[in-house]
Design a protein around this nucleic acid. Sequence first.
DNA 1: TAATTTATTAACGTATACATTAATAAATCT
DNA 2: AGATTTATTAATGTATACGTTAATAAATTA
Lengths: 226, 226
Amino acid sequence: MNKKQTKPKEPLANKAYRELKRKILDNELHTGSHMTEQEVSTLLEMSRTPTREAMLQLAREGLIELKPRHGMRVKPVSIEDMKEIYEILTGLESTAAALCATNGLNNDQLSLMRESVTAMDEALQQDDLIQWAAADERFHRYLVEFSDNQRLQKLVSNFIEQSHRVRMLTLKMRPKPNSSNKDHLDVINAIESNNAETARLIHHQHREKSGRMLISLLENFGLNHM
Amino acid sequence: MNKKQTKPKEPLANKAYRELKRKILDNELHTGSHMTEQEVSTLLEMSRTPTREAMLQLAREGLIELKPRHGMRVKPVSIEDMKEIYEILTGLESTAAALCATNGLNNDQLSLMRESVTAMDEALQQDDLIQWAAADERFHRYLVEFSDNQRLQKLVSNFIEQSHRVRMLTLKMRPKPNSSNKDHLDVINAIESNNAETARLIHHQHREKSGRMLISLLENFGLNHM
DNA sequence: TAATTTATTAACGTATACATTAATAAATCT
DNA sequence: AGATTTATTAATGTATACGTTAATAAATTA
């Protein structure tokens, strides 16, 4: 057992997984080039075994793809991929909204959600899209977290990660997200009234609208692979 | 490269994964006992590396759980787990139903779905629950497959696997599934009419009803962990 | 006898050796 | 020059050695 004053050492495979994922999501690794297991091991300064385990995990999560004899590369995301991802996120988040309404949220939870929408409003007024995106992400995260379904939470997290690079790439290309704030507020109100079907419907419509807008934008800019 | 007449050898890790999963789903491994990596390797007649990779994958898919120094065991499924799983399946399958209606299905696809409902009818008449379950599974599989969303298909597969043992355990405890057949037929009709919202609603209600019935049954029988 | 401390053992995480094999370079043939 | 065959190389899958460490047995203390 470790001495009292030191916490358990994080397994190298976990570390490899975290670092690779961060590099992918932060665009430090790109879709254009492959890296073999050996190259990744050298980059992460560890042996192939933990590196390999981390790569297998990331491949299963859809963030990288493995090509025989060529190693891994960041998985390009196509418009078709985004359609699939948004279809699932729409279904799951609507479910989360309905669950929140059915189970009921306490005042702290409702406050947190309202605060995130307020932060979205303020960010819009200041024309700060980065802040707006951060607040919007908080809202969606609360929605899923407060649904109290661990599996749903993990799934949504994963798909948000799969679509992260595309969403960051297109943040400033999108029109000003004026109606998002109102949609979110409507959802919160429906949740507060324990109106599951209304919460589901509003959020579903919001998500479908957002999805259509994003797909349309990708098509218009000719962004077929990202 | 392999000689022409032999197909590429399946990696041992894949084989380990398939065999372990089959044993779990067929109740050849039980929730009551742990097996170390070494014990599993001996059982599967291969070294620890492919075994370990397979075990990690199954753990991430929620079919087993790993306990430090004690190895793996089949993950018991609680009522809470079943609630979560059904909440997700409800959301995803409803999405699939709506996608089928939106995208439209061809006559072959509609026929396959109708045939599975016919098989459900016949199985019910013959009081053959096993056959009924098989036909019901086909219907659900078609629904998801014909939604044309690969990610959704994989997810649903995984959750169906997580709940498989509980569903098999309770098959003969459940009341006769009289309304399932009609529900499924109604969904098919809505899909045929390209009525996405109706397809979604009907399937959502069906799934919620099934879920409530199953949870209620588990609670009544006192089946807290399976 | 119960609690605490120390010792032991085996499970696991990782490193690396080795066998297999996929991609590609080189050689050969037409 | 292009197509085909053979050779080569390095990536990957797997086996196993080894260091770390978690659980538990044994020893010690109160």
